[in-house]
Protein backbone atom coordinates (compact mmCIF):
# COMPACT_ATOMS: atom_id res chain seq x y z
CA UNK A 1 0.00 0.00 0.00
CA UNK A 2 1.11 3.56 -0.54
CA UNK A 3 1.66 5.19 2.87
CA UNK A 4 0.87 8.78 3.74
CA UNK A 5 3.74 10.73 5.34
CA UNK A 6 1.59 11.56 8.33
CA UNK A 7 1.58 11.39 12.09
CA UNK A 8 0.39 8.26 13.90
CA UNK A 9 -3.37 8.10 14.30
CA UNK A 10 -5.30 6.25 17.00
CA UNK A 11 -7.34 4.37 14.36
CA UNK A 12 -4.30 2.95 12.55
CA UNK A 13 -4.26 -0.32 14.54
CA UNK A 14 -7.86 -1.00 13.48
CA UNK A 15 -7.05 -0.25 9.84
CA UNK A 16 -3.96 -2.45 9.98
CA UNK A 17 -5.86 -5.35 11.56
CA UNK A 18 -8.36 -5.13 8.71
CA UNK A 19 -5.59 -4.88 6.11
CA UNK A 20 -3.49 -7.74 7.47
CA UNK A 21 -6.09 -10.12 8.90
CA UNK A 22 -9.35 -9.47 7.04
CA UNK A 23 -12.97 -8.91 8.04
CA UNK A 24 -13.51 -11.24 11.01
CA UNK A 25 -10.46 -10.08 12.96
CA UNK A 26 -11.23 -6.46 12.11
CA UNK A 27 -14.79 -6.79 13.39
CA UNK A 28 -13.53 -8.38 16.60
CA UNK A 29 -11.18 -5.42 17.12
CA UNK A 30 -13.89 -2.91 16.18
CA UNK A 31 -16.39 -4.15 18.77
CA UNK A 32 -13.80 -4.88 21.47
CA UNK A 33 -12.69 -1.25 21.48
CA UNK A 34 -16.17 -0.42 22.82
CA UNK A 35 -15.44 -2.45 25.94
CA UNK A 36 -16.09 -5.99 27.17
CA UNK A 37 -19.40 -7.68 26.27
CA UNK A 38 -20.38 -4.65 24.19
CA UNK A 39 -21.44 -4.38 20.55
CA UNK A 40 -21.39 -1.18 18.46
CA UNK A 41 -24.70 -0.29 16.75
CA UNK A 42 -25.10 1.65 13.52
CA UNK A 43 -27.20 4.83 13.48
CA UNK A 44 -30.45 2.91 12.99
CA UNK A 45 -29.68 0.23 15.57
CA UNK A 46 -28.10 -2.49 13.41
CA UNK A 47 -25.14 -4.64 14.41
CA UNK A 48 -22.75 -6.80 12.38
CA UNK A 49 -20.29 -8.83 14.44
CA UNK A 50 -18.61 -12.23 14.69
CA UNK A 51 -21.09 -14.82 15.95
CA UNK A 52 -19.20 -15.50 19.18
CA UNK A 53 -19.24 -11.81 20.11
CA UNK A 54 -22.99 -11.58 19.51
CA UNK A 55 -23.53 -14.64 21.69
CA UNK A 56 -21.37 -13.16 24.46
CA UNK A 57 -22.43 -9.48 24.46
CA UNK A 58 -24.79 -8.14 27.10
CA UNK A 59 -25.02 -4.53 25.95
CA UNK A 60 -24.91 -2.32 22.88
CA UNK A 61 -23.55 1.17 22.40
CA UNK A 62 -24.59 3.84 19.93
CA UNK A 63 -23.21 7.37 19.70
CA UNK A 64 -21.80 7.14 23.22
CA UNK A 65 -24.94 5.78 24.87
CA UNK A 66 -24.90 2.24 26.19
CA UNK A 67 -28.00 0.08 26.70
CA UNK A 68 -28.57 -3.41 28.03
CA UNK A 69 -29.51 -5.92 25.32
CA UNK A 70 -33.09 -7.18 25.24
CA UNK A 71 -32.89 -10.37 23.14
CA UNK A 72 -36.66 -10.76 23.00
CA UNK A 73 -36.94 -7.43 21.18
CA UNK A 74 -34.01 -7.93 18.84
CA UNK A 75 -34.57 -9.03 15.25
CA UNK A 76 -32.09 -11.50 13.80
CA UNK A 77 -30.99 -10.42 10.30
CA UNK A 78 -28.23 -12.99 9.74
CA UNK A 79 -28.34 -14.20 6.15
CA UNK A 80 -27.01 -17.55 4.93
CA UNK A 81 -23.99 -15.77 3.47
CA UNK A 82 -23.12 -13.91 6.67
CA UNK A 83 -23.52 -17.11 8.70
CA UNK A 84 -21.16 -18.86 6.31
CA UNK A 85 -18.59 -16.15 7.07
CA UNK A 86 -19.02 -16.68 10.82
CA UNK A 87 -20.85 -13.39 11.25
CA UNK A 88 -24.23 -12.45 12.72
CA UNK A 89 -26.42 -9.39 12.26
CA UNK A 90 -29.38 -8.11 14.20
CA UNK A 91 -31.47 -5.01 14.78
CA UNK A 92 -31.61 -3.53 18.24
CA UNK A 93 -34.75 -1.43 18.76
CA UNK A 94 -32.98 1.64 20.05
CA UNK A 95 -35.34 4.16 21.62
CA UNK A 96 -33.77 7.09 19.80
CA UNK A 97 -31.61 7.28 16.69
CA UNK A 98 -28.28 9.04 16.87
CA UNK A 99 -28.32 12.64 15.67
CA UNK A 100 -25.17 12.01 13.70
CA UNK A 101 -22.78 9.20 13.19
CA UNK A 102 -19.69 10.74 14.73
CA UNK A 103 -17.72 7.51 14.98
CA UNK A 104 -15.38 7.17 12.01
CA UNK A 105 -13.97 3.82 13.19
CA UNK A 106 -16.00 1.90 10.61
CA UNK A 107 -14.40 3.92 7.84
CA UNK A 108 -10.89 3.17 9.07
CA UNK A 109 -11.91 -0.48 9.25
CA UNK A 110 -13.29 -0.37 5.70
CA UNK A 111 -10.17 1.41 4.47
CA UNK A 112 -8.13 -1.50 5.84
CA UNK A 113 -10.47 -4.02 4.18
CA UNK A 114 -10.07 -2.31 0.81
CA UNK A 115 -6.29 -2.45 1.30
CA UNK A 116 -6.68 -6.14 2.19
CA UNK A 117 -8.64 -6.64 -1.03
CA UNK A 118 -6.01 -4.81 -3.03
CA UNK A 119 -3.34 -7.13 -1.60
CA UNK A 120 -5.39 -10.11 -2.76
CA UNK A 121 -5.81 -8.58 -6.22
CA UNK A 122 -2.07 -7.90 -6.56
CA UNK A 123 -1.28 -11.48 -5.51
CA UNK A 124 -3.86 -12.87 -7.96
CA UNK A 125 -2.75 -10.74 -10.90
CA UNK A 126 0.89 -11.45 -10.17
CA UNK A 127 0.30 -15.08 -11.07
CA UNK A 128 -1.71 -14.45 -14.24
CA UNK A 129 -0.75 -13.83 -17.83
CA UNK A 130 -2.65 -12.94 -20.98
CA UNK A 131 -0.80 -14.51 -23.88
CA UNK A 132 2.83 -13.97 -22.94
CA UNK A 133 2.28 -10.76 -20.95
CA UNK A 134 1.91 -10.64 -17.17
CA UNK A 135 -1.45 -9.14 -16.28
CA UNK A 136 0.26 -6.69 -13.93
CA UNK A 137 2.19 -5.34 -16.94
CA UNK A 138 -0.96 -4.51 -18.90
CA UNK A 139 -1.51 -0.73 -19.11
CA UNK A 140 -5.22 -1.08 -18.34
CA UNK A 141 -4.46 -3.10 -15.21
CA UNK A 142 -1.80 -0.62 -14.06
CA UNK A 143 -4.18 2.26 -14.60
CA UNK A 144 -7.06 0.60 -12.73
CA UNK A 145 -4.85 -0.25 -9.75
CA UNK A 146 -3.32 3.24 -9.67
CA UNK A 147 -6.77 4.83 -9.64
CA UNK A 148 -7.74 2.76 -6.62
CA UNK A 149 -4.46 3.65 -4.90
CA UNK A 150 -5.21 7.35 -5.45
CA UNK A 151 -8.75 6.92 -4.09
CA UNK A 152 -7.41 5.22 -0.96
CA UNK A 153 -4.87 7.98 -0.36
CA UNK A 154 -7.64 10.54 -0.77
CA UNK A 155 -9.90 8.65 1.66
CA UNK A 156 -7.18 8.32 4.30
CA UNK A 157 -6.29 12.01 3.96
CA UNK A 158 -9.95 12.89 4.47
CA UNK A 159 -10.15 10.74 7.57
CA UNK A 160 -6.94 12.15 9.05
CA UNK A 161 -7.95 15.75 8.45
CA UNK A 162 -11.42 15.44 9.93
CA UNK A 163 -12.39 17.64 12.85
CA UNK A 164 -11.58 16.40 16.34
CA UNK A 165 -15.13 15.09 16.80
CA UNK A 166 -14.99 13.20 13.49
CA UNK A 167 -16.10 13.97 9.94
CA UNK A 168 -19.59 15.35 9.35
CA UNK A 169 -22.26 13.05 7.94
CA UNK A 170 -21.88 14.30 4.37
CA UNK A 171 -18.15 13.53 4.47
CA UNK A 172 -18.79 10.15 6.06
CA UNK A 173 -21.25 9.21 3.29
CA UNK A 174 -18.82 10.40 0.62
CA UNK A 175 -15.94 8.38 2.09
CA UNK A 176 -18.12 5.25 2.35
CA UNK A 177 -19.07 5.70 -1.31
CA UNK A 178 -15.41 6.15 -2.36
CA UNK A 179 -14.41 2.94 -0.62
CA UNK A 180 -17.31 1.01 -2.16
CA UNK A 181 -16.35 2.29 -5.62
CA UNK A 182 -12.74 1.23 -4.99
CA UNK A 183 -13.89 -2.25 -3.93
CA UNK A 184 -15.97 -2.55 -7.10
CA UNK A 185 -13.00 -1.57 -9.27
CA UNK A 186 -10.80 -4.14 -7.53
CA UNK A 187 -13.41 -6.88 -7.90
CA UNK A 188 -13.52 -6.28 -11.64
CA UNK A 189 -9.80 -7.04 -11.79
CA UNK A 190 -10.41 -10.38 -10.06
CA UNK A 191 -12.96 -11.51 -12.63
CA UNK A 192 -14.90 -14.61 -11.55
CA UNK A 193 -12.46 -15.16 -8.67
CA UNK A 194 -14.18 -12.20 -7.01
CA UNK A 195 -17.44 -14.12 -7.04
CA UNK A 196 -16.45 -17.08 -4.86
CA UNK A 197 -17.86 -17.17 -1.33
CA UNK A 198 -14.50 -18.12 0.15
CA UNK A 199 -12.45 -15.66 -1.90
CA UNK A 200 -11.60 -11.96 -1.75
CA UNK A 201 -15.11 -11.02 -2.87
CA UNK A 202 -16.28 -11.91 0.63
CA UNK A 203 -14.08 -9.12 2.02
CA UNK A 204 -15.78 -6.63 -0.28
CA UNK A 205 -19.20 -7.99 0.62
CA UNK A 206 -18.64 -7.60 4.37
CA UNK A 207 -17.35 -4.10 3.75
CA UNK A 208 -20.48 -3.23 1.78
CA UNK A 209 -22.72 -4.59 4.54
CA UNK A 210 -20.77 -2.47 7.04
CA UNK A 211 -21.39 0.63 4.94
CA UNK A 212 -25.05 -0.30 4.75
CA UNK A 213 -25.41 -0.66 8.52
CA UNK A 214 -23.01 1.99 9.83
CA UNK A 215 -23.00 4.87 7.30
CA UNK A 216 -25.17 7.85 8.19
CA UNK A 217 -28.57 7.60 6.45
CA UNK A 218 -29.52 10.05 3.71
CA UNK A 219 -31.35 13.11 5.04
CA UNK A 220 -35.06 12.60 5.62
CA UNK A 221 -37.48 14.43 3.29
CA UNK A 222 -38.12 16.94 6.01
CA UNK A 223 -34.41 17.64 6.51
CA UNK A 224 -33.78 17.72 2.75
Amino acid sequence: MLPLPAEPHPRLPLRDTARCEGPRSALLAFHRQAGPHTLVCGPAGHVLAPQELVADATQVTMAGRTSARVPARERDLTSALLARLGLAAFHFPHPQHADRCADDAVLWLRLGLTQHLMGAVLAHLGERTVGDTALLRQPTTKSALAEVAVALLEAESGLRDAAADGPDDTTLRLLHRQLTTSDEALLKLLGANGLTAAGPGATAYVSQVLADLYAPPLPSPEAA
Binding site: G42, H91, L195
Partner: peptide, 23 residues
Protein backbone atom coordinates in the same frame (compact mmCIF):
# COMPACT_ATOMS: atom_id res chain seq x y z
CA UNK B 1 -30.86 2.39 3.55
CA UNK B 2 -29.86 2.10 6.32
CA UNK B 3 -29.52 -1.67 6.54
CA UNK B 4 -31.20 -2.11 3.15
CA UNK B 5 -28.98 -5.13 2.42
CA UNK B 6 -30.42 -6.99 5.37
CA UNK B 7 -33.91 -5.51 5.45
CA UNK B 8 -34.42 -6.09 1.69
CA UNK B 9 -32.76 -9.47 1.00
CA UNK B 10 -34.00 -9.60 -2.58
CA UNK B 11 -32.20 -6.34 -3.36
CA UNK B 12 -29.05 -7.61 -1.63
CA UNK B 13 -29.25 -10.75 -3.77
CA UNK B 14 -29.59 -8.74 -6.98
CA UNK B 15 -26.59 -6.59 -5.99
CA UNK B 16 -24.52 -9.76 -5.59
CA UNK B 17 -25.92 -11.20 -8.83
CA UNK B 18 -25.06 -7.94 -10.63
CA UNK B 19 -21.36 -8.62 -10.19
CA UNK B 20 -21.98 -12.05 -11.72
CA UNK B 21 -22.98 -10.29 -14.96
CA UNK B 22 -19.54 -8.64 -14.99
CA UNK B 23 -17.95 -12.10 -14.89
Amino acid sequence: GPAARLEHPLLDKWARDAFGIEC
